[in-house]
Amino acid sequence: MSIQHFRVALIPFFAAFCLPVFAHPETLVKVKDAEDQLGARVGYIELDLNSGKILESFRPEERFPMMSTFKVLLCGAVLSRVDAGQEQLGRRIHYSQNDLVEYSPVTEKHLTDGMTVRELCSAAITMSDNTAANLLLTTIGGPKELTAFLHNMGDHVTRLDRWEPELNEAIPNDERDTTMPAAMATTLRKLLTGELLTLASRQQLIDWMEADKVAGPLLRSALPAGWFIADKSGASERGSRGIIAALGPDGKPSRIVVIYTTGSQATMDERNRQIAEIGASLIKHW
C-alpha cells in the first residue's frame, strides 16, 4: 500500500480515536468582514473530516451557485459507476470541434485522439475544463442524473440543472445549479471518507483534487509548508466565487472547508484575496 493510500485508509480509523476539536470565532469575524469588503453574501462552513461535526458556519443553509465545484461531485458519480462495473477509467471518448465550449484548455488539444474517462476527470478537476465536464455528464446521463446520484447519497439540496457554460449564470434567487455550504461539505465528506466509493476510488478523487492547478490564489496561497490540501474552485457570473477543500497539517486532511460568495461587484483578484484571507484566519486559529 502506498503512503497516499495509507493516509486515506486511516481516516475512518482516526475517527474513533480523534482528539476533540474546537472552533475559533475569529474566522467568522473574517467571513463577515469579507461580506462587507465584497458587498456580497458569503457562505462558509468548516467540518471535522473524521466526526462530521460542524466546527463553524455562516449562512450554511443558504443557496449559492455551485460553479465548477460541481466537477468533484461529477467525478464522484463517474467513479461510483466504475466501482459498479458500469464504466472504465481507461475508456477512450472521441469528440468533435462542435463539442468544445468556452474554457477547454485540455480537451481542445485532443480533438484527433480523444481522451480517456480518467483523463477527462483529471482535466475537469485539475484544470476546470468545461468540455471535459460536459463529456463526463453525458456518460452518466446528464445533469438530472447527477442530481439523482446526489439524492441517493442523501443530499436533497444540491442540484445540477444545466450544462457548461450555462450553469454559471448565477441569477439571484434561481435555485438551478446551486447548493448550500452545509450540504456540499457533508456530500464531499461522504465521497472522501464514506463507503459509497471503494478505497481506490476515494484515493483517485482526492488525488485529482490535490493536483488542482487553478486554485492557487485561494486557500493554497495561505497554506503553510507541510500542510495538505485537495480542493476545487469555481467562478461564475455576478461576482460569484467558491472553493471546496479537504485540508490539514502534517500532510493529511482533517477538515472540510466550503466557501461560496455571490453578488459582488468586486474584481476577481479581490474575491480571491478575501477567500485567501479567510483561509489565513482559519489556519492561524486552527
Rank of each mutant, 00 (worst) to 15 (best):
S2C: 11
Q4G: 10
Q4V: 12
F6L: 12
F6W: 10
R7L: 06
R7W: 11
R7G: 12
V8G: 11
V8A: 11
L10V: 11
I11M: 11
P12Q: 12
P12G: 14
P12E: 07
P12H: 12
F13P: 08
F14G: 07
F14V: 11
A15E: 04
A15L: 11
A16P: 08
F17C: 11
F17W: 09
P20D: 15
V21L: 06
H24G: 07
H24Y: 03
H24L: 03
P25E: 08
P25C: 07
T27Q: 01
T27L: 03
L28M: 12
K30A: 10
K30L: 09
V31G: 00
D33N: 10
E35A: 04
D36A: 15
D36G: 14
L38S: 05
A40T: 05
Y44W: 01
I45V: 15
E46G: 01
D48N: 03
G52D: 04
K53W: 06
K53A: 15
K53N: 10
E56A: 11
E56D: 09
S57K: 10
S57Q: 13
F58M: 05
R59A: 01
E61Q: 14
E62A: 06
F64C: 00
P65A: 06
P65T: 03
M66I: 13
M67N: 15
M67F: 01
M67V: 05
M67I: 04
S68G: 00
T69H: 01
F70Y: 04
K71R: 00
V72G: 06
L73G: 03
L74R: 01
S80F: 13
S80T: 11
S80E: 14
R81A: 07
V82I: 10
D83H: 07
A84D: 14
Q86Y: 12
Q86R: 12
E87Q: 05
E87D: 08
E87V: 06
Q88V: 12
L89A: 05
L89H: 03
L89W: 03
R92S: 10
R92G: 04
I93M: 06
H94E: 10
H94Q: 13
H94P: 08
S96W: 08
Q97W: 12
Q97P: 15
D99E: 12
D99H: 13
L100V: 11
E102Q: 12
Y103K: 02
Y103Q: 07
T107A: 11
K109V: 08
L111G: 05
L111D: 05
D113V: 08
V117L: 11
R118K: 12
R118E: 14
E119A: 07
I125M: 10
T126A: 09
T126C: 11
T126I: 07
M127F: 09
M127K: 07
T131S: 13
T131Q: 00
A132V: 00
N134K: 01
L135F: 03
L135E: 03
L136G: 00
L137C: 02
T138S: 15
I140F: 07
K144L: 14
E145T: 10
E145Q: 14
T147V: 07
A148G: 13
F149Y: 11
L150T: 05
H151D: 12
N152Y: 06
N152G: 13
M153K: 04
M153W: 05
H156N: 13
T158A: 02
R159T: 05
L160P: 00
L160S: 06
L160T: 06
D161V: 02
R162G: 06
R162A: 04
R162C: 04
W163Q: 07
W163G: 05
W163E: 06
P165E: 02
P165D: 02
E166N: 12
E166S: 09
E166L: 08
E166R: 06
L167G: 02
L167Q: 02
N168L: 03
E169I: 13
E169V: 08
E169A: 12
E169H: 11
E169T: 15
A170D: 14
A170T: 11
P172S: 09
N173K: 10
N173T: 10
D174R: 02
E175A: 12
E175K: 09
E175Y: 10
E175F: 09
D177R: 00
T178V: 02
T179R: 00
T179M: 00
M180A: 15
P181H: 00
P181C: 04
P181V: 03
A182K: 15
A182G: 13
A183V: 09
A183W: 07
L188F: 08
R189V: 04
K190S: 11
L191V: 05
G194I: 03
L196H: 15
T198G: 11
T198A: 11
L199E: 15
A200W: 07
S201A: 11
S201V: 09
S201F: 09
R202M: 07
Q203S: 08
Q203V: 13
I206R: 12
I206V: 10
D207R: 13
D207C: 13
W208A: 01
W208R: 00
E210S: 09
E210M: 08
E210L: 05
E210Q: 12
E210A: 13
A211V: 04
D212Y: 00
K213S: 10
K213V: 09
K213G: 06
G216D: 10
L218M: 08
L218P: 02
L219H: 01
R220I: 00
R220A: 01
R220L: 01
R220F: 01
R220Q: 01
S221F: 05
S221W: 05
S221M: 08
A222F: 05
A222N: 12
A222Y: 06
L223K: 02
L223Y: 01
P224H: 02
G226C: 04
G226H: 09
I229C: 05
D231L: 02
D231A: 04
K232V: 00
G234A: 04
S236C: 04
S236R: 15
S236A: 15
E237V: 14
E237D: 12
R238Y: 12
R238V: 10
G239L: 01
S240P: 02
R241F: 04
R241S: 08
R241D: 02
G242C: 05
I244Q: 00
A245V: 06
A246L: 13
A246G: 01
P249N: 03
P249M: 03
P249H: 02
D250H: 10
D250W: 07
G251M: 11
G251T: 05
G251N: 13
G251D: 07
K252P: 01
K252E: 10
P253A: 15
S254C: 10
S254A: 10
S254P: 02
V257I: 12
T262K: 10
T262R: 08
G263W: 14
G263R: 06
S264G: 14
A266L: 08
T267H: 10
T267F: 02
T267S: 04
M268S: 05
M268R: 04
D269H: 10
D269F: 09
R273I: 07
Q274L: 12
A276T: 07
E277Q: 11
E277S: 07
G279S: 06
L282G: 01
I283Y: 10
I283V: 15
H285Q: 06
H285T: 08
